[in-house]
Design a protein around this nucleic acid. Sequence first.
DNA 1: GTCTATACAGCGATAGAC
DNA 2: GTCTATCGCTGTATAGAC
Lengths: 183, 183
Amino acid sequence: MTTHAREALVVTAQRLYAEKGVAATTPREVLEHSGVGQGSLYHHFPSKRDLAVAAVSRTVEETLRSAVSQLEGTGAPDARLAAYLERPRDAVAGCRVGRLTADPLVMADADLHTEVAAYFSNLIQTVAGVLREQGLEADAARDRATTAVAVVQGGYVLSRALGDQEPMRAAVRGFLGLLEARA
Amino acid sequence: MTTHAREALVVTAQRLYAEKGVAATTPREVLEHSGVGQGSLYHHFPSKRDLAVAAVSRTVEETLRSAVSQLEGTGAPDARLAAYLERPRDAVAGCRVGRLTADPLVMADADLHTEVAAYFSNLIQTVAGVLREQGLEADAARDRATTAVAVVQGGYVLSRALGDQEPMRAAVRGFLGLLEARA
DNA sequence: GTCTATACAGCGATAGAC
DNA sequence: GTCTATCGCTGTATAGAC
């Protein structure tokens, strides 16, 4: 059981952070939903911040790995980008990483802020790489990659605001339509 | 002074909400920053929620009016859209309305949620109207309008995450580049 | 309409036994 | 490493005088 309590706490924190944000999630909620006791929580994570760092790092790592894996997978570059953009997402729930940019606790903590920055920096870089495979020059690739990532993040915001999965799909459709019109 | 305290409270709340979100802003902070006394706050706004409704409604109203005014102003449709997208923004601060989609208090309150939904619904509708002026058919106009609004909202998320105004500019540049390539 | 004083709950964290 | 008990503080709101 040595490492089980710690693991249960991290996984539970990840879930609650995705639902309500980091600042709004209390240590008490985490221990109640994970089934571990109060002593255990404060043994493994002396402060709320320590738990936040562990859970947010994990989420960033998982989310980035999954995105990069799809973007650098097999198939033609344009098909890979389209598949990433059209990926099934619970858009109404919002992006687990993107939502952190509005979290007071995350933004006030240098380490947590850096985690979020690194995620988007790497993601844009990866998308730009796919666009360069298509022959786009570096500057144009970086701009268009930023646009692509922004469309997804904005799609999350709109779907969440309107309580409907459709805005995300419409935003991606509109973007892919413009990409195809070029070819 | 009858209405001055109320007004000061609303304006102060708007500012603090933009800085740290609604849930994270305490009634105490609002009264301290506005200079009114505790009794006054609870006289004008019996609960934190009442103040939130007043301040958020005001922000949504102001922001929408400003956007619509520019989008439906003078000049060619494509120039108006470009001007709206390239508008000077403090992107690192985030969108005063968009950030509310990650605010636990706003999302848990039906009236506040509806305010935010109405804002984006109206904004997308307005942009779609501009695109239809350019001859785009209804479905394509709605999709592309959703993309345009998503690019701005995503630009905010990226600029905030990276602590840099540049990602917003890059996202808009990438989008306008695709629009021009079509013409 | 505004003031001062106060109530009460929940949050984040600690103490000390086992 | 986990438990129960408890602490100090702040958030939200109320009471009652002026």
